[in-house]
Simulated assay, not measured.
Amino acid sequence: MSSRSTGTATKARRAQLAENLRATRADIAAACEAAGRDPSGVELVVVSKTHPAADVCALAELGVRGFGENRDQEAAAKAAEVAASGTEVRWHFVGRLQRNKCRSVVSYASMVESVDRSSLVTALDAEARSQRDSPLDVLMQLSVDSDTARGGVAEADDEALAAQILACQGLRLRGVMAVAPLGWEPGRAFEAVARRAAKIQALAPNANIVSAGMSADYAEAISFGATEIRLGSKLLGRRDDLRYAFETK
């Protein structure tokens, strides 16, 4: 991150984030009401990729606890900076994860949401057993359109991957994650996610998290039962628009 990204958020930036969070929570509540759901059943994870640690700390002061990152190099440095400030948050790793990054990711992540293949399960399990006193929470990333090259497990392999995770001492299967494919109607995508999530929960009753929905389609995800939504730009704006939102110590 550039030197402009270090330090603390200005008073104006903190006020902007507070207003964005207020509006976002109101929108989530409205989406839940339309779906006949209690807002307390939907967790907000703020995707903080490309945004500085100062934003994370400011939002944590406002009560946000979950933050998502998709690149280990950025996430590891940001997690260290946030920890050094004394701020406690939960890091969700949501990007495509290579096995050689597992050691680093396990050192700071509370949850890995992008588990989609057997070799990754094996690597994460080994690192979790080595580094942690308790199992690492993981979600199976589902490929909605079966194009696994973009990440996610194909539906035909759901049960086998779930069984492998359940057999691991270092991992705890908590549910599924998915991204609606480009060109798909969100409702069609999230209906498929809900159907597959129910099958996996039948195998593992505690795997009840459905992480689905981003800034453009979170309302549709909520209507199909998402219990976690991952929002970035709706709260944080575009990284290029920050300009002088931070002041150095």
Rank of each mutant, 00 (worst) to 15 (best):
S3Q: 03
T6H: 04
T8P: 05
T10C: 11
A15R: 10
L17G: 07
A26W: 10
A30W: 00
A34M: 06
G36A: 12
G36V: 03
R37F: 02
R37E: 06
G41E: 08
V46S: 04
V46K: 12
V46A: 15
V47F: 00
K49T: 01
H51Q: 07
C57K: 09
E61K: 03
L62V: 10
R65V: 12
G68F: 03
G68P: 05
R71G: 03
E74Q: 01
A75G: 11
A80T: 14
E81T: 12
V82L: 07
V82Y: 08
A83F: 06
A84G: 04
S85M: 14
G86L: 10
G86T: 05
G86Q: 09
T87N: 13
W91V: 03
W91R: 09
W91F: 07
V94K: 09
L97G: 02
N100D: 14
N100R: 13
C102A: 14
V105R: 14
Y108G: 06
S110D: 14
S110L: 13
R117N: 08
R117P: 14
E127T: 08
R129W: 04
S130H: 11
R132I: 06
R132H: 13
S134N: 03
L136E: 10
L139N: 05
M140I: 15
M140H: 05
Q141T: 04
L142Q: 07
D147I: 10
T148Q: 04
A149G: 03
G151I: 03
D157W: 10
D158L: 13
E159D: 06
E159I: 11
C168I: 02
G170N: 07
R174I: 07
G175T: 01
A180V: 00
G183T: 01
P186G: 01
G187V: 02
A192H: 12
A192P: 10
A194W: 02
R195M: 07
A198K: 15
K199N: 11
L203M: 11
P205W: 05
N206I: 08
A207F: 02
A216W: 09
A216G: 09
D217N: 14
Y218T: 01
Y218Q: 00
I222H: 05
I222C: 02
F224M: 05
F224R: 14
A226H: 10
A226F: 00
A226E: 07
A226R: 00
T227H: 01
T227G: 04
E228A: 06
I229E: 02
R230W: 05
R230F: 01
L236N: 10
D240K: 15
A245W: 03
K249E: 07
